[in-house]
Design a protein around this nucleic acid. Sequence first.
DNA 1: CTTGACCCTATAGTAGACTTTAGGGTTTAT
DNA 2: ATAAACCCTAAAGTCTACTATAGGGTCAAG
Lengths: 132, 132
Amino acid sequence: MRIGELSKNTGFQVETLRFYEKQGLISPVGRTESGYREYDQESLKQLHFIQQAKSVGFSLNEISELLTLRVERDQHSCSEVKTIAEQKLVQIESKINELNKMRDALHKITDACCGGPEPATSCTILNALDNV
Amino acid sequence: MRIGELSKNTGFQVETLRFYEKQGLISPVGRTESGYREYDQESLKQLHFIQQAKSVGFSLNEISELLTLRVERDQHSCSEVKTIAEQKLVQIESKINELNKMRDALHKITDACCGGPEPATSCTILNALDNV
DNA sequence: CTTGACCCTATAGTAGACTTTAGGGTTTAT
DNA sequence: ATAAACCCTAAAGTCTACTATAGGGTCAAG
């Protein structure tokens, strides 16, 4: 399968696939005489893996690490994999907490504002942002 | 007050202050003969405003917009301000939702993993990321 | 045998929010 | 008077994850 077909089968754009190759995430099985990349089912599987990993919040660097573990499964322990996953979980949760705090703070000052057509001369939102 | 003192009083790095000036967020009251920026209490207030706005999730572009409203309070209505705040609230909430989904998905596959010292040959996390 | 779809490389650009570098004046304390 | 600390500008670099551009081969169909 050439890159265009791989693109259709995975939803990743052709440029993205070449970019992922440069990042070391995937690589073609070989090249045709004319230099075209050739891919097989394994590439397809790897890209599905990448899609899934992205969807649960892993960065490309982290995915690269996970792909290594995936390929070298027998040389690595479950705990190694779980540790990475748990770290990501902590990161996601701390982002959620941060955003929750933002939402609450913003909610509070937004609720206090009348939102009416009158000039914002003493707008509670602007005032709230003023007073530290 | 020169830029170094403003930096100390606000916690923003000197380079960041100059960067903010380039972005149109702040500007010195004037310059000394030798070209040094000079700031007053208003700069301090603006930077506190910026800090607060950042802390509730506004981007620099949005803060720039808010600063304009802040300065031209009488020419703008409360509803203008509130609209911006509410839009941001919606954005923050949708980010939270997205992260919640990620957390749940990751939680599910992480919980299923034993996390033990055995090889990751049939690690449930790696498998989960494999199977779309 | 030519046209269009497809492929290649290398390099640059995008967004956001800064940080770093290079090169060079000014002020202040000793 | 000199060294440290501080200030200036312009331009380039950082990070993430791509996207776009320029310029140029290859393959299948008509």
